[in-house]
Design a protein around this nucleic acid. Structure first.
Lengths: 371, 371
DNA sequence: TTGTATGCGTTATCAA
DNA sequence: TTGATAACGCATACAA
């Protein structure tokens, strides 16, 4: 093949900077249809002469042709984009999840629209609107509490837009979900302390509004029951509802302080999440109670800072990144099913938590705690 | 107006779930052109009869009409989307920046595409490709080191796609940038310690590959010079290059350990960034050196975890969220200029850092440091 | 093996 | 004051 065959492109030689398929057609001497078939490697490409293919690909490359995703959507109805909505990206929980989502989408050559509802309902709705206008093929919602009524998201599935939630689940059978097995996590935390010999254990439960709170506590109760461990009510506190994902830190601090002031005796503490644990540790340390020597502390989540906390936090890890990818794979199954006109079902995943033992826990001393 | 005038929409009553402009036209009894004019409040809308407007808007709403962003783009060349590319979202530096970008875009009814290069060049390029295919109106790149040659991004400005970098700047005059004034920040950190009476100060400088490292150090040197403070070379260490944004923690730990082992005497330490500072504090504490009683430590950035560290970290804050918004406003000026066929210039912003005094610094003791 | 024609949902120009 | 028509860039059915 004459590799030097000139590429003729008629252009107003002016402003128009975007190379279109027509340009490639003109440049290669074939029709736009043929170009389309070749560049997309469509079924019909089987019948195109190799020389033609080569020529077209060559020209496309030389011209720097880039398919226009918008125009393409108009025909194919595939936008190759997915909406990713966070209730509050400020929550350290979110970053690894985002990474997991992004990475899985990237593998599939999909690109995410990023939305952050700032915990505001109207903002959530506005973003939903925008995503719909941009015709995302699927939606992933990352949240740990619920203000979104079913209708909003169920609406999506009526439009055949598969949706999945992470860290949260919806009643009904229209939205898939990916969560950690909170009950197992709660059990894991208590079991760990129990095995270390702790019997006087304090608890800072999660806020009522968080869907995680109840099952974690249930896991704790169940283990306590099965092990014959008594949970002393006066050692159980519950964080107040709050929209600030970082409020746990302050809450943990205050509640640990409170326990100390009431001269409660405990050799270990299970916090609702890592920030709460770190806040509690801060209060304990400040009051002269050494962690873990005098009091062990366990968190939940294993967010990035937990490994850097002092002492490094023992915690129940959620596989956040994996949860992100799983959500992607889940909705993409729906997307594919849709295109192949297959039926499919939503799925609800409960992923296994994992105990990560670091420096904030150790075997119970013989004596009780402080004061 | 008869509020009950029926809306007649002919449809195959089947699968098609998306309401188009044509549907609104049919439903309202007007032509698509008129509907377009009314719903976009185009100039010509001035001449449309109020009753017509009302009817059309009513029908559009009742039918749940949503403009198709793709089709709209094809005509208007406006995608109402912006590419946001992170070199590594894992860096705690990034989250507040993302929030700032997202928020500013939201105000303008633009939606961001989220891209994370994972510090990989080919991934960066692939994403760039995707963003171009999706015809983003602008690009924002968040990074603190450079593997991207000018050409890649300069290429954009040839396509009239305004670009801005955050935390990093490019030579040439094609890409805007938003950075913190690192030199001022370095000065701030040292000045603070100096005023507290510290004279024996150790430094952990940033890796060479980070653009921030040099100016921060320059700010330190300049202040030292002007204050007549001597910087002891043996107290100056430099972090090795690394692609892991969290490696500073380990580096800070190791270097602080090293200083201690060499029996160096110092009453304060300035770390390149917060993670490094927190790592250093960990090593100091572990070696029995109390922070801040025996050694003050200053960080840089004020990432989220700094306030929660123990002790809470004194640091030089970058206005990360504001930097994000500023970058948005900067590129949007280019976008607007482009549409109004105006000329415009890129801009380079240096934002003021701010000293945040927390618990990791205090007045120098009379004696030196440890051992 | 390749080309022609059509339509996706909009907007803009022109005509009525 | 409103409507018909063309065009944006692409992919497909059909024709050649």
């Amino acid at each position: 093949m004459s590799a030097e065959e000139p590429i003729a492109v008629k252009r107003a030689s002016g402003k128009n900077l975007t190379i279109t398929m027509k340009d490639v057609a003109q440049g290669s001497g074939f029709s736009p249809a043929t170009v389309s078939i070749v560049l997309n490697n469509a079924p019909l490409a089987r019948y195109i002469a190799p020389a033609t293919k080569k020529r077209i690909e060559e020209v496309a490359k030389k011209l720097g042709y880039r398919p226009n995703a918008m125009a393409r959507f108009l025909r194919s109805k595939r936008s190759r984009s997915v909406g990713v909505m966070f209730f509050d990206i400020t929550d350290p929980f979110c970053t690894p999840v985002l990474r997991g989502i992004e990475n899985a989408l990237y593998q599939l050559s999909y690109i995410p629209f990023f939305c952050d509802a700032h915990n505001q309902r109207n903002r959530f709705e506005r973003y939903l609107e925008m995503l719909l206008e941009h015709h995302v093929e699927a939606l992933i919602v990352v949240a740990n509490w619920l203000f979104v009524d079913i209708h909003l998201l169920a609406d999506l599935s009526k439009r055949n837009i598969p949706a999945a939630t992470i860290g949260w689940e919806l009643p009904g059978d229209t939205v898939s979900s990916v969560m950690v097995d909170n009950e197992a996590g709660g059990r894991l935390a208590l079991e760990h302390l129990y095995q270390l010999g702790h019997r006087k254990i304090a608890f800072i439960r999660g806020p009522k509004m968080l869907i995680d709170s109840a099952p974690r506590w249930r896991g704790i109760q169940k283990f306590a029951h099965s092990a014959g461990l008594e949970i002393e009510p006066s050692l159980v506190l519950q964080l107040p509802d709050s929209f600030d994902p970082n409020s746990g830190f302050e809450g943990g601090y205050r509640f640990a302080e409170e326990l100390l002031q009431k001269k409660k005796r405990f050799t270990a503490l299970i916090a609702f999440d890592d920030l709460t644990a770190i806040g509690a540790i801060r209060a304990l340390t400040r009051a002269g109670v050494k962690v873990p020597e005098q009091c062990s502390v366990v968190g939940f989540d294993d967010v990035a800072l937990s490994a850097m906390a002092a002492p490094a936090l023992t915690t129940v890890r959620q596989p956040l990144e994996a949860m992100g990818s799983l959500a992607v794979n889940t909705v993409m199954e729906g997307v594919n099913a849709g295109h192949e006109k297959r039926d499919w079902n939503i799925s609800r995943h409960k992923m296994n938590p994992e105990l990560v033992i670091r420096d904030s826990t150790r075997a119970a001393a013989l004596t009780g705690s402080d004061d």
